[in-house]
Simulated assay, not measured.
Amino acid sequence: MTPAVTLTFDDGPDPVWTPAVLDALDAAGARATFFVIAPRAAAHPALLERMHRAGHTVELHCDRHVRHTELREDQLAADTVTALARLDELGVRPRLWRAPWGITTPASEAVARAHGLRLVHWTADTEDWAGHAPDTMLRRVEDAICDGAVVLAHDGLGPGATRTGCANTVAVIGPLAALAADRGLRCEPLTSGAVATP
């Protein structure tokens, strides 16, 4: 199997920034995984179609972007059912699930099992939500770019973001892909055998 790293994007799709992220991925020859907020996905189905056409994968983030620690198991189950139903209407059937803020609980694990989902985390965090410059983000993750690395970034503005746009995220994609290539790594989507677990 070819050594690979995965670029992942949470909190989208966004009608402005997701197309720019997709353009940057295409220019870099990189394929990625998008963990989508279901109502945003339902509002922008053409972006999901574009993701699939380009060889990216679309997985579950949430319906409401709420920490799992703030939800009872029945509330988390209801949120997940709603999100999966919205995505199913778009022809998307996730197998991977990244919780908001990456925070999981025993309830997360129970709900994941009930729906055949695998909870996944990340091994390198760009902290792009804070609005860091592209070179700062690259330095944050460069030591972690290795076979099996899972890089966290965002193609949408989620709760807690302190930036006003995703331009710096778009700008770091090319350098990240180039760094991976220099290390003999391809940028490929996550699979259901993903190892970055919470």
Rank of each mutant, 00 (worst) to 15 (best):
C62T: 11
C166A: 14
E59Q: 10
V5S: 06
L7T: 02
V66T: 14
A130K: 11
R31Q: 15
A99P: 08
E49T: 15
M51E: 15
M1Q: 01
A153G: 09
P159V: 03
R139P: 00
P189K: 00
A171Y: 09
H56C: 07
F35H: 07
A124P: 08
D74T: 13
H68F: 08
G91P: 05
R95V: 15
L96Q: 06
G156M: 03
T162V: 12
G160E: 01
V195G: 10
D26H: 04
A54D: 15
V120D: 00
A177T: 13
P3N: 03
P159A: 14
A4T: 12
T136N: 12
A110E: 10
R67P: 11
R64Q: 15
E127F: 10
T164K: 10
W101F: 15
T197V: 14
T126D: 01
A110L: 07
R139T: 12
V195C: 01
T8G: 05
Q75I: 09
R139N: 10
P19M: 05
L84K: 06
S192I: 13
A124C: 07
D135K: 13
P198C: 07
H121C: 13
T126F: 05
V141M: 14
H65P: 06
D10K: 04
G158Y: 10
E127R: 14
A180C: 13
D155W: 06
A177E: 06
H52G: 00
V16Y: 04
R95M: 11
Q75P: 02
A167P: 03
A41H: 12
W97P: 00
G160V: 07
W101M: 00
M137C: 01
P13W: 10
D26Q: 12
V21K: 01
T80K: 09
G12N: 02
A46P: 02
E70K: 15
A85K: 01
P39M: 00
R86Q: 14
T104E: 12
T104R: 05
F34E: 06
A130C: 05
M51H: 09
N168V: 12
C166F: 06
I103C: 05
G116T: 05
L47V: 11
P100R: 06
P134K: 01
H56S: 06
A130Y: 04
F35Q: 05
P19S: 07
D125E: 12
E109N: 00
T191V: 02
P198N: 03
P175R: 09
P94Y: 02
A153Q: 07
R113T: 14
G160L: 03
I37G: 03
A112Y: 06
S108M: 04
R95N: 10
D10W: 03
G116Q: 13
